[in-house]
Design a protein around this nucleic acid. Sequence first.
DNA 1: ACCTGAACACCGTTCAAGT
DNA 2: ACCTGAACACCGTTCAAGT
Lengths: 214, 214
Amino acid sequence: VVSRQDPSSTSAPLSRELITVGAIDFIERRGIEQLSMRALAAELGCGTMSLYSHIRNRDDLIAAIVEELLQRSGMPTIATQDFPNWQELITTVQLAYLDVAFAYPRSFELLALAPYDVAPVAGFLETLVQALCRAGLPQDRAYEVLGAVDAYGTGFLTVWVRTEVGQKESDAKASPHLKSPRKIDAFERGLRVFIEGFEREFERSDADGARHQP
Amino acid sequence: VVSRQDPSSTSAPLSRELITVGAIDFIERRGIEQLSMRALAAELGCGTMSLYSHIRNRDDLIAAIVEELLQRSGMPTIATQDFPNWQELITTVQLAYLDVAFAYPRSFELLALAPYDVAPVAGFLETLVQALCRAGLPQDRAYEVLGAVDAYGTGFLTVWVRTEVGQKESDAKASPHLKSPRKIDAFERGLRVFIEGFEREFERSDADGARHQP
DNA sequence: ACCTGAACACCGTTCAAGT
DNA sequence: ACCTGAACACCGTTCAAGT
């Protein structure tokens, strides 16, 4: 019966935002499999059922976490800016994706593996397609490049953080946050190769189109 | 007190294999989030604790499922064969990866997102690297291509099946197993683009090396 | 409106007891 | 060796009751 006088939290009233932030912090410290409504409420210093005044259920909490991580990644902001070409835009977005995987390794897969039709993710992807069009890519090519490169980034980063987090749990003395430069290089090289592959594909297909319809 | 006379199962003695096969079948019918030791035992017609005579715990069950899916995918067999070039080998493996995602959409992510250091997956990746070397790729390039293309396939297929399974749950009347040809085309196009990107990268880097060291 | 404890229907796994 | 029920320490969520 402590009525939320926990030292780690202000006595600010509970809110969806505060619960979401607390949940991300919880996952990064103790792991996603430890996150339960009861354990989270205990850390926030409130009764379990108080959470349900601000959040519909566990799935709604996950959706709120995904939205918060998406905001913190800065990717939605990037998608509102203008870029000289689609290559730079895609690269910038993917490097921001890499950064969020490092900053939140244990929460990352909630964002990375959220189905395309989860509310805030779908909206972000739409604005990203528009940005690619503004950067000079026809819409069908924008969808193609985005889908493919996003799949690459998602797969690469998800398996990487899973493997790393798994090792951290078994190997307590492993260096805690070393951004293994070899892996980062591999990520960036693969990204460049993929983009150059699309450049070439588009060049060839344009030349082909010009030949058929000069 | 039925003592395993369930109509859906033979009265064969319980085994690790039988439990694993039953678990995959369970997931495909009812979803991964419904799989529990208790529910699985009920479907197999045995007591919950009987499972623990053949399987250490839930994580061990998951590992057994991953190993079984890997076998059924046929990818380990492909990796023992010889191919005329690395491009064909990588393509064949990725198409087998696509097939297993379709055959086991709800179990697929257990295989796809297994950390690299999970026992049977690590072994398979090693034999795959060797096969790439036999197909003419230097070892460092084999690792690079494999890591990148595998990330692409994993990301593409995982998010796809998640989105599809999610829709199937909300939209009961959705067509059940339509292998949306648009998506398959997109997967194969991205794969080809990525491989051609690496071809070009290697050509250029070879030419570069020849110029420096003629 | 926000907060809460009790209760319900679940979990995974340990243990002791059976064959 | 294999199987099992009871028990323990957990879950998410509903409900009724408080402020």
